[in-house]
């Protein structure tokens, strides 16, 4: 199964405070472990919300809001996609993820909707399968 792993934003990532050198090194080691275990499919770090945009969708209306945003809990500082056997394995990996922030933060694991989860994929559901 595939899971999306979100590293949630904290004050540090929002303020663009770069992680300490040791934290970087620990993250590199963790990433290397994920690669060598064949787990990492994709991933990237994201810039602070100051450079982000939010598009509010309401009926036919679209309203664009420029960052930075206020609600820290809803923001993401990075993501990766893992291929794992089950959620237990995803959890075991996530527990190993080093903490690169000096402040409390969070990591979330969200399983993908897979083809098996849909009785018959309809056109509108394709995008939810990640197949464009």
């Amino acid at each position: 199964m595939r899971v999306m792993v979100f590293v949630k934003a904290g004050e540090d990532t929002e303020n663009g405070v770069p992680p300490a050198a040791e934290a970087f090194a620990a993250m590199d080691r963790f990433t290397e472990e994920l690669v060598n275990a064949g787990v990492l499919v994709a991933g990237a770090g994201l810039k602070p919300s100051a450079s982000a945009k939010r598009i509010l969708v309401d009926g036919a209306a679209r309203t664009v809001i420029d960052g930075p945003f206020a609600e820290m809990r809803e923001m993401v500082a990075g993501f990766s996609i893992w291929e794992v056997k089950d959620m237990d394995e995803a959890l075991a990996w996530a527990r190993r993820c080093p903490n690169i922030m000096a402040v409390p933060s969070a990591v979330e694991i969200w399983p993908f909707i897979e083809a098996e989860d849909l009785a018959a994929p309809r056109d509108g559901e394709r995008s939810r399968l990640g197949v464009a």
Binding site: A42, I81, P121, R126, L129, G130, V131, A132
Partner: peptide, 11 residues
Amino acid sequence: RTRWDRLLIRR
């Protein structure tokens, strides 16, 4: 072809 997995193609 819209059902092809773009992520795997990219990889």
